[in-house]
Amino acid sequence: MNRRKFTFAAATLGLGSAVYGASAFSFPSLKKRVGVVGLDSSHAIAFTKELNANTTNESYKGYQVVAAYSMGSPSIPLNAERIPKFTEEIKKLGVEVVASLDALLRKVDVVLLETNDGNVHLQQAEIILKARKPLFIDKPIANSYEDASKIFELADKYKTPVFSTSSLRYITGIEEIDKKTVLGADIYSPAYTEPSHKDLYWYGIHGVEMLFTLLGQNCVSVQTQHTTDFDSYIGEWDGGRIGTLRGIRKGADGFGGVVFIQDKIVQLGAFQGYNPLLKQIISFFETGKEPVQRLETLAVCKFIDAAHQSRLEGGTKVILNNK
């Protein structure tokens, strides 16, 4: 077997994002109850503060976080500190903290899965989707292409919509670019790692999602250069287009990049916060339409898995099998 070729089992997932009939997930106007699963992510608090403090914001359509379950992975050192802290914080925001996932599902209509451990998302998602609760999975969707594929299969099985994305898809300037004109992009992002995850799934996925937002799902190869403090990823997309990601772990960090298009070079702006993403999530809960196509989400996972393999093999170019 050619170790330079990174192959993936094909999942029978259709050609695009699924849209389920309104009867599968829509609710009477008075039912706008959001549940948060996982209090080991700062997003759990940020999303709750934004939604619950802005009940008259038309974009949020009355959705409020009413219950939370602190399920997380305390074996990750950061989470051992965060879970008790965020549990107390969310209580102060008027949210009921329940003792089990089943208890939460009885109290809510839709779910934000905020557990930051992608290794347990498949298990958690199965329970939530089986209960027919429309589901947003915060990054990462999983810690492998295989698990991400199974999550979408479960969504089809239970006829319940699910999607996952990074908030950096909505960084200033990115939506105004005509993606058909993009010739390439150089992106930078923090890329802190956690031993339980393949490198980019833990934090650098933000930068990967920016690349795929700009260049689309058809990445054909990736090559990783790794040092203790930095990573550089060179991806080739269809048409010979090049997208690069600089992953930062030392010195000043942030999100941004340069986009090369047909007639000019565009500098991306600053991270806008969570409001643009929350608008997409609420629209998804209302309509069942996935803002990010599942095939693109799976392509992100293929890229990350292949980039990890490239690092393990000393920086070899890894070919993505997109069939």
Results as ranks from 00 to 15, higher is better:
T316L: 11
A99C: 10
K85N: 14
K157L: 12
Y60E: 05
V111E: 04
K317N: 14
I304E: 06
A67I: 04
P140K: 00
L245N: 13
S149I: 05
F47W: 13
K130A: 12
Q217L: 05
K157E: 10
D117C: 08
G35R: 06
A80P: 00
K264S: 15
K91E: 12
V34P: 10
I128S: 01
N275S: 14
G21D: 08
I234C: 12
L214Y: 04
I45L: 14
N57P: 07
T48I: 07
A306Q: 09
A10R: 13
L312H: 06
I234L: 13
D147W: 06
V98I: 09
H226Q: 13
A252M: 01
G235C: 15
L51I: 10
L51R: 13
I45T: 11
K323I: 07
M71F: 14
V98Y: 01
D102Y: 00
I90T: 08
M1R: 08
G243I: 08
I282M: 00
K159C: 02
E58V: 14
I261Y: 00
A299G: 07
G254D: 01
Y203K: 15
R249L: 11
G14I: 08
N322E: 05
T181G: 10
L183H: 13
Q272P: 14
I177N: 08
A46R: 13
S283W: 03
D156T: 05
S144R: 01
G35I: 04
K157A: 03
A11D: 03
G235M: 15
E88K: 13
S41Q: 02
Y203W: 15
E175A: 09
L215H: 03
P77T: 09
F255S: 01
E58F: 06
G269M: 12
S41G: 14
T12P: 11
K139P: 08
D178H: 07
K61I: 00
K31Q: 13
V266E: 07
F136T: 10
S59N: 13
L183C: 10
E286V: 04
R241V: 09
G240L: 00
A99P: 01
L200K: 03
V66F: 05
P134S: 04
A10Y: 07
D305K: 06
A185P: 09
V19F: 01
V65S: 10
I76Q: 10
S166P: 10
T7S: 12
Y170P: 02
S167I: 07
T287W: 01
I265T: 15
F47R: 11
Q225A: 15
T193H: 11
V98Q: 10
H197L: 02
C219P: 02
